[in-house]
Design a protein around this nucleic acid. Structure first.
Lengths: 136, 136
DNA sequence: CTGTGTGCAAACACTTTGCAGGTGT
DNA sequence: ACACCTGCAAAGTGTTTGCACACAG
């Protein structure tokens, strides 16, 4: 699936900014921050444009946002595109990377009577395999 | 355990702001935002003072911060005070409340090789028992 | 051609920092 | 008395909004 097709499928206009964001995020094995995305894009875009593009892509469930500690914001391809289901996110304290743990499904939590759950977010913090190696 | 004792135990000076925050948070069954805390406090305090007080109390593990969707910030008594262990947090989409699910322990997630976890945050979003009743 | 996306400037909200003066111990 | 807390002003940062122009369909 190409970025252009994704945009078409969602009836979104094909603009270089949107297309670029999707491509960059699609290739990356990690969730990326606005700046990391900017670095990998060919054109140069205003911050406002990024914000609006992220918002649009998020609303159409093309990408999803992961927030760590109220300040670090990263984006990754959404489940509806990857078809990998709901998963936990991993944040590495050492290298600040965020990874979608496709193989770590969200577990079911038993809530008290009267509570109904719609969505569960799991963020695991620790050291990723890359950073662990470097410590040895 | 009174608020004053908690401050003493952590070698923190007893100021009305800190004492008030702890008392309000301790009584509440829900996590509270800065404004919700302000409303229940007797004195009036500058935002800066709040920020610094929250920071201090957080660093001493007297309260902990829960962030929903990168914008909604709430505070609750920390585990080390309540002695109730790590638990999931519940966010009600209807009334915007955040509750500590003392009875919902964090489950163990099996990470890929090389990853080590230090801390796991679980935020369950849905409808709380209060809001469910009102719909009936 | 028409509606939508983009860039720029300005506004806004949250948080942090510096400093002078006040308070707890 | 001294260290530290507080309030105020200002700066810093992330995000949103209004508007004119550009571009996709």
């Amino acid at each position: 699936m190409k970025a252009v097709d994704i945009l078409n499928n969602h009836n979104l206009k094909r603009t270089s900014c949107r297309e670029g964001i999707i491509e960059v995020v699609m290739i990356s094995r990690q969730a990326l921050s606005e700046n990391e995305i900017r670095e990998q894009l060919v054109g140069n875009y205003d911050r406002t444009t990024f914000y609006r593009s992220f918002k649009t892509l998020e609303e159409h469930k093309i990408i999803h946002k992961i927030v760590v500690d109220n300040q670090c914001v990263k984006y990754a391809l959404d489940n509806t595109i990857t078809h990998k289901g709901e998963h936990a996110h991993f944040y590495c304290n050492t290298c600040d990377s965020v990874q979608c743990m496709d193989k770590v499904p969200i577990q079911k939590y038993q809530l008290p009577d009267g509570y109904s759950d719609i969505e569960t977010e799991v963020l695991i913090k620790g050291t990723c395999s890359n950073c662990k190696q470097e410590n040895n």
